[in-house]
Nucleic acid binder design. Structure first.
Length: 933
RNA sequence: GCCUGGGUGGUGGAACUGGUAGACACGCAGGACUUAAAAUCCUGUUCGCCUUAAAGCGAGUGCGGGUUCGAUUCCCGCCCCAGGUACCA
């Protein structure tokens, strides 16, 4: 029979499901291998062709590893809590769990159609109570822990309490809030219970913190930064104000150093690691306190100094002004009456600027003088204090010591406002711009004059410490992560409040179920949606009303796959000790600093408290590129009055007509040629459309854009699978180009892949489509083809170069077709090698070859034998001055000298030399001959 | 602005360690089969020049330089595109 992909694919998908072919056990004599994909959020739009790209790659890898004798864990699940479902619920009143359920069913159907080898018995859903029970449980462990810097890890809060009770706060080196108390053991014991608890909250790894949020009173909710435009909500355009709010936070900063160091131990793409490094943002420097000169201030001020962080403390004698952020808490107090108007005008101006404007505009210098001064702690010099929007409130202390001779921004600022620029290093050239050099000796710098960078820095830090005005400090850019959302569709926080204190519910009360509410909106008093729940009250107090953020459930899910149905633990010790970590993780780079950082954080925490065994969760990570949409256009003719007609001009003829482009559904266009009948049927307004054709065809224009419904460029994998089959879809997505590269989707080449599979099928069949394979001994040429592909695919898979292996399969099948090879000895091995890429057609042929159904997935992978590829001759390219002129076959057993002689004696070579004597002859054995004349 | 990745035929791409640029596929053109179409198969296909043809010549991997016997690959400078982004002191 001809290649009937529909029957074959349905048959084998059913077989795998019925026989649980890919179910994997938590113990085996085989070595383990864990291949995981970033699980999807099940959106209402369903899967588009961009999603499966990574899944196909990981599935090929998983199937390959299985063939190579590994016990492979390859699971899939759903990140099913999230905003879109809630938004939909607000609009339609449908419960998010209902729409989520529907969407998951669609995803599952679409995934099944592509023939993935997932072990579905381990499926997880973050929104399922069985799952979020453990998300809540981990939250409780974090609440019950603090970070002991001395031990270099998280420990139980009990240990901290014990220490307080025996030794007070002395000897505690912890990551904590800034404002912790100092006390003796007796003083601790004497503290009221509430004060003790408040104190402990300053140490817990999850804690309450007041943070500013974008509050939109009209919508009654908190908005994300990108939902706010110029101080108004993007949705509705209502005013947004900064509001302080008590929120749950995660003390991820405790792990900053370990998160940074860990990057050196994992096999991730370097750009992605770089992103994480930059996000963590470690900088070594010093904090310096500049005393406020109160003699010039007319109003009283509580603060005594402005603290700055600098990485160049050695330049402190070059400081000629201080710049603080317009949002700095001291701005108002420092502003003198004369400067008040200036400062207020500047602050108003800053608020109008969007983040993007502030970033792109490095050329405009702006700022305003507060009228106040601080004193240089080392020489007592009076230094003016300015505000400027290039200083950000959120980083460091929100204040900068400006050294215009060494920093270009400070330099421009000083030039613009006519502030002094003092050179501090002898070789510094500051005529036209700042010179940040660290070479040379210091000048104009008091006691470090004549010193070099290293000694100077040490001397300044020592002096600052001596006078109590500063100290060496490591600063991280990374902030603690807010861990709460004023939303409904998320995990409830397992906490209730009594007398203003948070208490964990008991473990036996887990999971704390999400209550039913009447509508998915904030309450009239501005409480989160959970405030609407009736009869939802802890016996001891009021439940927390915010829910966990989107990243909670995804920060540990790889452990749940290891033991997905355990109701005693998030995963058993045995399962974790067996699977350990994810060997290969494939997903998009948009999660570089969110999910991938939080996951590493939770993993390190779980290791600290002894529940997991590996410091890093994902040993190797590959980013798949984004698949962009390729839109098609038709061109509507514009008549003399400038009105659109119902006539459409083919792309090649546009120059002669006035037209306007219209997006057309890519699904009714093939290779940029419009299907006229489908176009007429597409929309009623086009039913009478007329066309100006070129060569009898209507050719569409095209553009690369985001894949989106409104551009009519969304391609659904179902359509491809229906038309060409899953095996073609799988191979085509790989054939499209390098996995890690972003590329537009187009189906231009899909016929080639489909034809390849038919050609492969035909190798096993005669002219009349009868299955016909012989047991004859293979020829040398056939063995060569086979072993070439064995080696090539092995190399390609190991370096995740799937596109090149698809090409190689085509070459192999072309060669074997030319050789008219239908020998079992060759074809059976070829079936195994191709199986990870095209699992359905290969399963069918595998059984036709007489093997037991379903055994292909665990067959023995063919071994490469280099002997079949040994050549005795090589067609040397002969080049003259680097330009290839001809080929010359020469035995590979000859040595350098013989080759040289042979080449020079050749008549054709002599012709190219044209009587000239070669200056030099380069012979690279087995590669090239180059004659220099 | 900064960081990262990229720029190769009409198109997607290949060339893995500096060694035959354009594998493989699409598209296109021509041909075979067919009453016809689809399907299939065969041939050609980087560009320019010359040629009846065979063959030949020249240019060519974003642009300009450099290193080298030899550069898509390494170095310097520039332009453009994509993604990320936090003026990070």
């Amino acid at each position: 029979m001809d290649y009937q992909f529909k029957d074959i694919e349905q048959k084998w998908q059913q077989f795998w499901a019925d026989n649980q072919t890919f179910k994997v056990e938590n113990n085996s004599t085989k070595p383990k291998y864990y291949v995981m994909d970033m699980f999807p959020y099940p959106s209402g739009a369903g899967l588009h062709v961009g999603h499966p790209l990574g899944y196909i790659a990981s599935d090929i890898f998983a199937r390959y590893k299985r063939l190579r004798g590994f016990n492979v864990l390859h699971p899939m699940g759903y990140d099913s809590f999230g905003l879109p479902a809630e938004q939909y619920a607000i609009q339609t009143g449908q419960h998010p769990s209902v729409t989520t359920e529907d969407n998951i069913a669609t995803y599952r159907r679409q995934l099944d159609q592509i023939g993935f080898s997932f072990d579905w018995s381990r499926e997880v859903r973050t929104s399922s109570p069985d799952y979020y029970k453990w998300t809540q449980w981990i939250f409780m462990q974090l609440f019950n822990s603090w970070y002991n810097k001395a031990a270099g890890k998280a420990e139980s809060i009990e240990k901290l309490v014990e220490h307080f009770a025996t030794s007070g706060s002395k000897g505690i080196d912890a990551v904590s809030d800034e404002d912790t108390l100092t006390f003796t053991a007796d003083e601790w014991k004497a503290l009221p219970y509430k004060t003790q608890q408040e104190e402990l909250l300053k140490y817990r790894l999850t804690y309450l913190r007041e943070s500013t949020v974008n509050w939109c009173a009209a919508l009654g909710t908190v908005l994300a930064n990108d939902e706010v435009k110029d101080g108004f909500s993007e949705r509705g355009g209502y005013p947004v104000e900064q509001k302080k709010m008590m929120q749950w936070s995660m003390r991820i900063t405790a792990y900053a150093e370990r998160l940074l160091q860990g990057l050196d131990t994992i096999d991730w793409p370097e750009p992605l690691k770089e992103m994480q490094r930059n996000w963590i943002g470690k900088s070594t420097g010093a904090s310096v306190r500049f005393g406020i000169d109160k003699t010039t201030l007319q109003s009283p001020i509580t603060a005594d100094y402005i603290e700055v962080f600098t990485t160049r403390v050695d330049t402190i004698f070059g400081v000629t002004f201080l710049v603080i952020a317009p949002e700095h808490e001291l701005v108002e107090a420092l502003t003198t009456p004369e400067q008040k108007a200036d400062i207020e005008a500047y602050i108003t101006q800053t608020k109008k600027k969007s983040e993007l404007d502030r970033m792109a505009d490095t050329k405009t210098v702006s700022g305003a003088f507060t009228g106040s001064y601080v004193l240089n702690p080392l020489n007592g010099e009076k230094i003016p204090v300015w505000i400027a929007d290039y200083v950000l409130a959120g980083y460091g202390t929100g204040a900068v010591m400006a050294v215009p001779s060494g920093d270009q921004r400070d330099y421009l600022f000083a030039k613009h406002f006519n502030l002094p620029i003092v050179p501090i290093i002898d070789i510094q050239n500051i005529e036209t711009e700042a010179d940040p050099t660290k070479e040379g000796k210091y000048i104009n710098s008091d006691f470090i004059n004549g010193l070099a960078y290293k000694e100077a820095t040490a001397a300044v830090v020592a002096k600052l410490e001596e006078v109590g005005a500063g100290k060496a400090k490591v600063n991280f850019r990374m902030r603690d992560a807010i861990f709460g959302r004023q939303r409904y569709w998320g995990e409830p926080v397992p906490v209730y409040f009594k007398d203003g204190l948070p208490y964990l519910i008991s473990e036996t009360e887990l999971p704390l179920l999400l209550p039913e509410i009447d509508k998915y909106l904030p309450t009239e008093t501005g409480e989160p949606p959970l405030g609407r729940a009736t009869d939802w009250k802890h016996p001891e107090g009021e439940y927390e009303l915010s829910t966990m953020p989107g990243w909670a459930g995804s920060s540990w899910y790889w452990y749940r796959y290891m033991d997905a149905h355990n109701d005693q633990e998030f995963a058993s010790k045995e399962a974790i000790e067996y699977w350990k970590d994810v060997d290969l993780y494939i997903g998009g780079s948009e999660h570089a600093t969110g999910h991938l950082l939080y996951s590493r954080f939770w993993n390190k925490f779980l290791k600290d408290i002894g529940f997991v065994v590996e410091e890093e969760p994902f040993k190797k990570l590959i980013n798949q590129g984004m698949i962009q949409g390729r839109s098609n256009f038709v061109y509507r003719l514009i008549d003399a009055e400038g009105r659109g007609t119902n006539t459409f001009i083919s792309h090649g003829l546009l120059a002669d007509h006035k037209t306007s482009p219209i997006h057309v559904d890519v699904n009714i266009v093939k290779n940029d040629v419009l299907d006229l009948d489908k176009f007429k049927a597409w929309r009623p307004e086009f039913a009478d459309a007329e066309f100006v054709l070129e060569n009898g065809k209507y050719v569409c224009g095209h553009e690369v854009e985001k894949m989106s419904k409104r551009y009519y460029n969304v391609v659904n994998p179902d359509d491809i699978a229906n038309q060409y089959g899953a095996d073609t879809l799988r191979m085509y997505e790989m054939f499209l180009g390098p996995l890690e590269q972003s590329k537009p989707w187009n189906t231009n080449g899909i016929e080639g892949v489909f034809k390849f599979l038919r050609k492969f099928w035909r190798l096993f069949h005669d002219e009349q489509w009868n299955f016909r394979v012989t047991d004859e001994a293979p020829t040398k040429a056939e063995l060569k083809s086979l072993h070439k592909i064995i080696r090539k695919v092995e190399e390609d898979i190991e370096r995740f170069s799937f596109n090149t292996s698809v090409s190689s399969f085509m070459i192999a099948v072309n060669e074997l077709t030319d050789l008219k090879c239908n020998k079992r000895a060759i074809l059976q091995d070829l079936v195994i090698i191709l199986a990870p890429y095209a699992p359905h057609i290969t399963e069918e042929l595998w059984t036709l070859l007489g093997n037991a159904a379903g055994t292909l997935s665990y067959a023995a992978y063919p071994t490469f034998n280099p002997e079949y590829l040994v050549e005795d001759e090589f067609a040397y390219p002969i080049s003259v001055n680097g330009k290839t002129k001809m080929n010359l076959s020469i035995s590979l057993s000859l040595d350098q000298k013989d080759i040289e002689a042979l080449v020079l004696a050749n008549a054709d070579v002599q012709k190219y030399l044209d009587g000239k004597t070669p200056k030099k002859l380069i012979v690279v054995k087995g590669r090239i001959v180059n004659i220099v004349v």
